[in-house]
């Protein structure tokens, strides 16, 4: 079988860590697509998926810290990752700009995640060859 040319992917994660398997499945898929010679354009967190971007996630020491694993992967692969700003703000995920704007006592977005609007997702639908959604299970 001839190998198909490299594709570009956007992954959308809308299931939260610890209540869904979405961040875990998406990470395994992300690693596999890169191993397969493809490009990961961007990771987009939407809905409850934005909880993955909280730097304050503190699981027990014998459990996986999905935020940390994702952060490490994103930085190693230099993959842009954005949290939908509308989803993030109402779930208490803020960067320093939003902290200032809303006069909140702290910001907590984990590196290298950034806040962006749905326009980023719209752009992804136009530029990536494939978009996969990692959804909640309920």
């Amino acid at each position: 079988m001839t190998r198909s040319p490299a594709l570009s992917y956007t992954l959308v994660i809308s299931g939260a860590p610890y209540t869904s398997q979405a961040p875990q499945s998406a990470l395994a898929f992300a690693k596999a697509l890169i191993s397969g010679g493809h490009k990961l354009d961007r990771v987009f967190l939407y809905g409850d998926g934005v909880y993955l971007a909280s730097s304050l996630v503190t699981p027990p020491s014998d459990e996986v810290n999905w935020t940390q694993l994702w952060s490490e992967f994103l930085m190693q692969t230099r993959t842009p990752a954005v949290a939908c700003i509308a989803s993030a703000l109402r779930r208490g995920i803020l960067d320093s700009a939003e902290q200032t704007r809303y006069e909140q006592p702290a910001s907590n977005i984990a590196e290298p995640f950034e806040m962006a609007g749905l326009g980023d997702w719209v752009e992804a639908t136009m530029t990536s060859s494939r978009i996969l959604y990692f959804l909640p299970t309920d």
Partner: peptide, 19 residues
């Protein structure tokens, strides 16, 4: 299939639907 196999299926299908 493993994750590598799932990637191959996304290569061969232009349209992907997540349920």
């Amino acid at each position: 299939i493993g994750y590598a196999g799932l990637v191959v299926l996304t290569e061969t299908h232009q349209r992907v639907m997540n349920w």
